[in-house]
Write a protein that binds this DNA or RNA. Sequence first.
DNA 1: ATAATATTGTTGTAAATGCAACATATTTTT
DNA 2: AAAAATATGTTGCATTTACAACAATATTAT
Lengths: 157, 157
Amino acid sequence: MKTKPDCKLHYTDSIHYELEQTSRLMKKVTTQLFEKLEIGLSLDEYAALDTVSVNAGICQRDLARLILKDRANTGRILDSLEQKGFITRFIDTKNNRLVKKMGITERGLKELDTINKKVKQYLESVTKTISDEDIERVQETLKSFRLELEKVVEINI
Amino acid sequence: MKTKPDCKLHYTDSIHYELEQTSRLMKKVTTQLFEKLEIGLSLDEYAALDTVSVNAGICQRDLARLILKDRANTGRILDSLEQKGFITRFIDTKNNRLVKKMGITERGLKELDTINKKVKQYLESVTKTISDEDIERVQETLKSFRLELEKVVEINI
DNA sequence: ATAATATTGTTGTAAATGCAACATATTTTT
DNA sequence: AAAAATATGTTGCATTTACAACAATATTAT
């Protein structure tokens, strides 16, 4: 019977910490890129806008669940996007309840497209040394990882 | 000549966003675990303590570079760890300059060991459905990903 | 029917975070 | 030798963030 060598005694050697560090670094890089390219959105606003664009008519709380922010901050991000004219919000009902739904505007779609074009090439250059297969595999593993996390996390959104 | 199908038009489909989301969720899970187990350290303090334990005699700025926090917050985290008696700080020189170096105390080592034992099993249960090979592969890919990021990021620590 | 609970969004607040400015000391440049 | 630049740590502040409390409405329980 083989016993696994228990060499990863340190938290800093765990996949949890590796993920944390990589993500932190990546956020830094992307934020710096946004400033360099003079993109008038924060990274979070961009992610929210992109999420709205593929989830037309979503309500705020559901969006909050998707972008993993609480309702308060989701509302604030949407305030900013609305004020910039990239989304429209309208009152509607969901399960007989009044909710604030939203959609992306023409201008928002155009802006999203512009940012995508600006950013995409740059971000891909970061992963150029990594094979498509590896990228694919990491994304798949992360997805199943995320599913496991969702099972144990308490979400109070 | 094959042309790649360009189907990943959305940022939210990119590995960058997937990483961000997984990391955010994981942080939530770990923080909740720390509270449930009544661990008297924040996640950041834990990571810092672990880093100090394997880098005896490191100075503050070098530690900041390792944990990817700025000098200000690194100092604050260390204040807390010192106040709790888990590290000791002492003035020394590095390249002829006065620096604050640090080391983990007996008590800190004991605490770290306790937390490691408490946390390890729980965190591993999250990845139990993922094969060791996949975990290994993800960690390797993330590492090369991180190297690429380090090439392009501007670090002003 | 009335009370208790649940859903959705907003406001307030305390903590975390990053950045710039500062103090101090050393090295490099002129 | 004087001035400029660099390295290290701390302090202050403005932004971000999460969490709790609230308001309004609808559903469920008693």
